[in-house]
């Protein structure tokens, strides 16, 4: 694919590197000459110095041949207009805009931007999720995420407390591999009871993960 990225920061840098690694043809438009020079040394991409929201600069970037444009500047208005010019003037089929004011997201999509994503919104959701599930730590994923290893600490609200494992409705692709209680770790058996404050090491397939967490915490993610 031919991809145009507009912006000056790390997001543009890392995304461009990723696209280049995936063999896409990348053009970056930067308004700061110092950043542009830096990018041109670090990334195998065409780097153009200029205002990426300007029709002339987009022409220089051969927008009419592009399959995708990503507008990732710090200003919503610049991201919107860059995508609109690319779409209406140069017929770029897919446009992606970064939105800072979450309230603009819907409006951008109403303006036929293919995807408008709000980093603020995404972060806020992540933080909220973290806060809701602060007793859960994801350790690592094995073999490209086919199996995940997670730690959950049982609190007093957990519906699993005082129950034995055999009485829990654990999903098939999930396992309580280890219980850590008062600093002692042991591998549980079917008759093992769970207590408040237990740290459970879980092994599960991703499709069973949510159900497993629900059984242990009573919360639905």
């Amino acid at each position: 694919m031919r991809i145009i990225l507009i912006g000056d920061d790390n997001l543009v840098y890392f995304l461009s590197k990723k696209f280049v690694a995936e063999k896409h043809q990348v053009t970056i438009i930067n308004c700061d000459p110092v950043t542009a020079r830096k990018f041109s040394h670090q990334i195998k991409a065409t780097v153009i110095i200029g205002d990426g929201t300007h029709p002339t600069i987009l022409k220089e970037a051969e927008a009419e041949k592009a399959d995708l444009i990503l507008a990732l500047t710090a200003h919503d208005e610049d991201n919107l207009v860059a995508c609109q010019i690319a779409q209406q003037h140069y017929g770029v089929p897919r446009t992606i805009a970064l939105v800072h004011d979450p309230a603009h997201q819907q409006f951008f999509e109403q303006m036929r931007i293919s995807v408008a994503f709000s980093a603020t919104q995404i972060l806020a959701n992540l933080i909220k999720k973290r806060a809701d599930f602060e007793d859960i730590t994801n350790f690592f994923a094995v073999d490209r995420g086919q199996i995940g290893v997670t730690e959950v600490i049982l609190n007093e609200d957990s519906p699993a407390v005082e129950k034995s494992l055999q009485n829990l409705d654990l999903p098939a692709g999930a396992l309580i591999a280890c219980i850590i209680r008062q600093g002692q770790a042991f591998v549980p058996r079917g008759w093992s009871h769970l207590e408040v404050g237990d740290r459970l090491i879980l092994i599960s397939q991703p499709e069973n993960y949510d159900q497993l967490l629900e059984v242990l915490t009573g919360k639905v993610e």
Partner: peptide, 16 residues
């Protein structure tokens, strides 16, 4: 003083 801002705000005013 910014064209893009005027363009965006105008579209907001019209559509939203």
């Amino acid at each position: 003083g910014k064209d893009n801002l005027n363009i965006m705000v105008s579209q907001l005013a019209k559509t939203v």
